[in-house]
Nucleic acid binder design. Structure first.
Lengths: 84, 84
DNA sequence: ATTTTATTTAGACATTTGCCTAAACATTGA
DNA sequence: TCAATGTTTAGGCAAATGTCTAAATAAAAT
């Protein structure tokens, strides 16, 4: 839960998640959309992975990142306790 | 949206929200439940108020904090885009 | 009036965060 | 094998964060 909220508490990381809604993408393709350096984006991706918001698979020299929507359910569950 | 995620990115603040599910409470009553100093809790309450997750009304020398569930809908809306 | 009680504001300090550049690692292609 | 490409790791730095104590503010009680 901590890692989840931490990962979401950054506009760049939230934008990465929104980008991945369109489908999996390589680290490089993701990095192209932002003005930050590749290492910076790599670090953001690492935090998203720690929160299990994304998964990564190595494909040759590329690393493909994919949204993991499973974790959203955990978050929704936490939020729903406030809806009653 | 930024203030919202920022406010949620702290276990003490999330615990305060959960405390307020049981009903409104004064700053002092909230602070009693934690090991932190009153100023620290006051600061957390300030961040929750900035995110509009809580409202506060002064009642005599007390300040009563109340959950504001309205903002949760905004968050649910953001999450929902990932569910399809 | 003065003191007590409730809360916030101010200022300091250590830790965490987000960014960078340089270097390392891993895979592909000449 | 050597060079090019894609990505991560390492290390450094400024800004933000979470905590504290001391002081200020405001209302209540004596």
């Amino acid at each position: 839960m901590n890692a989840l909220f931490k990962a979401l508490n950054d506009p760049t990381r939230r934008a990465i998640l929104e980008r991945l809604r369109a489908g999996p993408a390589t680290a490089g393709a993701i990095a192209e959309q932002f003005q930050f350096s590749a290492p910076t984006i790599s670090h953001h991706l690492d935090l998203l992975r720690q929160a299990e918001l994304v998964t990564s698979q190595k494909q040759g020299q590329f690393v493909v990142y994919t949204l993991n929507m499973t974790v959203f359910d955990e978050l929704l569950g936490w939020l729903y306790q406030f809806k009653s």
